[in-house]
C-alpha cells in the first residue's frame, strides 16, 4: 500500500476577522492526532487581512499555516472557499481534514469532500488514530470517527479505509482547547487565490450577526430543565432555582422543541456543549445527545421522578422526586442556610 501523507489539516473559521473557538479546539485535537501519526499539523486560513489569525494557530500547535488572502475572500462564501480548499486538498493530499460543525463548516466540508471523493463524517464526538481490520484487510493508522447515530441510541465508529483523505466535522465545545506553553515557530506559506467561474454567482448583500446573549459555555453553574417539567409554566421552577443559586438556565432539546425555553439555551449535541462546575439536570431523562453536551461537568445533580432515567447513570447526586417538590424545598433550605 502506498504510504499516505502524514498531514492533519484544520480549516480555520473566522467571522469578521475573529477566529471561531471551535477552530482552536480542533487544532488542539489535531495536534494529538498528528502526534499519534508522527506527522504534522497544518492549518488553512482563508480570508482577507487575516495574517493575525494565521499567527494565532501556532499557539495551538500548528506546524505550518497555509494562508490564502484575497479581497473576494473577505467574508465566508461557500463557493470561493470551496474552490480554495478543493485545490489545496487535491494538491497536497492531506490524510485528515477537520472542520467545525458550524453552519460554515457544514456547508463547506461536504462540498470539498464530494469533489475530492473523500470520506466525511459529521458531528464526531471523538476522534482517534488506530490500526483497523476491516473485512479481513488490515488498515494501519486510520482515523476512527466516533459519533452518536440513530437519534443517539447507538454510538457508531466510522472509518474511511479505501480513500486516501478522511474528513470530519466536530461541534463547538466538544473537544478541549489546549494552548501550548510556548507557541510553535511561525511558518506561514502564502498561496494565491485562483478563482473559478462559479465563485461569484452568489453575493452577500446583507448580513446581521448578534453576539450571543447567553454564554452557557462560560457559566460555572447551570440549571437545565427537560420535557419532564411538563409545561412552560412549570419550567419557571428552573428559573427560580437558577436565580437562587446564581446559575444560568438551560434546557434539553425536548424542552426547547416544546417551547419551554429558547434554543440558544439548549445543551447537547445539537446545542451547546458545557463543562460547568455544577449542573442541575431536572426532568431530563438523559438521552445520549444530551449527555454529550454536559457529561464533563464537575458535579451533576439529577432530579427526576423516574428512577430508571439514564441521567442517574452519570449523576454524582441523584434525587428521585418531582421538580415541584424538590426545587421549592431546595430553594427554601438554601435560603435558610445562607441566612
Amino acid at each position: 500500500m502506498e504510504e499516505r501523507k502524514r498531514e492533519v489539516w484544520v480549516f480555520i473559521e473566522q467571522r469578521d476577522g475573529k477566529t471561531a473557538e471551535v477552530s482552536f479546539e480542533l487544532l488542539s485535537k489535531g495536534r494529538k492526532l498528528a502526534d499519534s501519526l508522527n506527522g504534522v499539523l497544518k492549518s488553512v486560513v482563508i480570508g482577507n487581512n487575516v495574517r493575525g489569525i494565521a499567527e494565532e494557530t501556532f499557539k495551538f500547535g500548528a506546524d505550518e499555516t497555509l494562508l490564502v488572502e484575497d479581497k473576494a475572500l473577505e467574508k465566508f462564501r461557500v463557493m470561493p472557499y470551496a474552490t480554495v480548499m478543493i485545490k489545496l486538498v487535491k494538491k497536497h493530499q492531506p490524510r485528515i481534514v477537520l472542520f467545525g460543525a458550524t453552519i460554515i463548516g457544514r456547508g463547506l466540508a461536504p462540498r470539498v469532500a464530494s469533489n475530492t471523493v473523500s470520506g466525511l463524517t459529521a458531528d464526531c464526538t471523538d476522534l482517534q488514530i488506530s490500526d483497523v481490520t476491516y473485512l479481513k484487510k488490515d488498515f494501519p493508522e486510520l482515523l476512527l470517527q466516533i459519533r452518536p447515530a440513530f437519534g443517539g441510541n447507538i454510538i457508531a465508529t466510522i472509518i474511511t479505509p479505501d480513500n486516501p483523505i478522511q474528513m470530519a466535522t466536530v461541534r463547538e465545545g466538544v473537544m478541549e482547547m489546549h494552548p501550548l506553553d510556548a507557541p510553535n515557530p511561525i511558518k506561514i506559506t502564502e498561496i494565491p487565490y485562483e478563482p473559478e467561474p462559479m465563485d461569484d454567482v452568489l453575493q452577500i448583500i446583507e448580513q446581521h450577526r448578534e453576539e450571543r446573549k447567553v454564554n452557557l459555555k462560560a457559566a460555572p453553574i447551570i440549571v437545565a430543565g427537560g420535557y419532564g417539567l411538563g409545561s412552560k409554566e412549570n419550567f419557571k421552577l428552573i428559573h427560580d432555582l437558577a436565580a437562587a443559586i446564581g446559575g444560568e438556565v438551560a434546557g434539553s432539546r425536548a424542552a426547547v422543541d416544546a417551547g419551554f425555553v429558547e434554543h440558544e439555551r439548549q445543551i447537547g449535541q445539537t446545542g451547546v456543549t458545557v463543562r460547568p462546575k455544577l449542573i442541575f439536570e431536572v426532568g431530563i431523562s438523559g438521552a445520549i445527545q444530551h449527555r454529550a453536551g454536559m457529561q464533563e461537568a464537575n458535579k451533576i445533580i439529577a432530579i427526576n421522578i423516574d428512577p430508571e432515567a439514564p441521567i442517574f447513570d452519570i449523576a454524582h447526586y441523584g434525587i428521585i422526586g418531582s421538580a415541584e417538590n424538590v426545587i421549592p424545598l431546595f430553594i427554601e433550605t438554601l435560603k435558610h442556610k445562607l441566612k
Partner: peptide
C-alpha cells in the same frame, strides 16, 4: 468512502451516584 466499523448500543456504567432523599433533611 465511509464505512461503519463498529456500532455499539449505549451502555451506561450506572448507579454510582449518591442518593439524596427528596426530604428537607436529605
Amino acid at each position: 468512502p465511509t464505512k461503519v466499523h463498529k456500532v455499539e448500543s449505549v451502555v451506561l456504567a450506572g448507579g454510582k451516584y449518591e442518593k439524596i432523599e427528596a426530604s428537607k433533611d436529605g
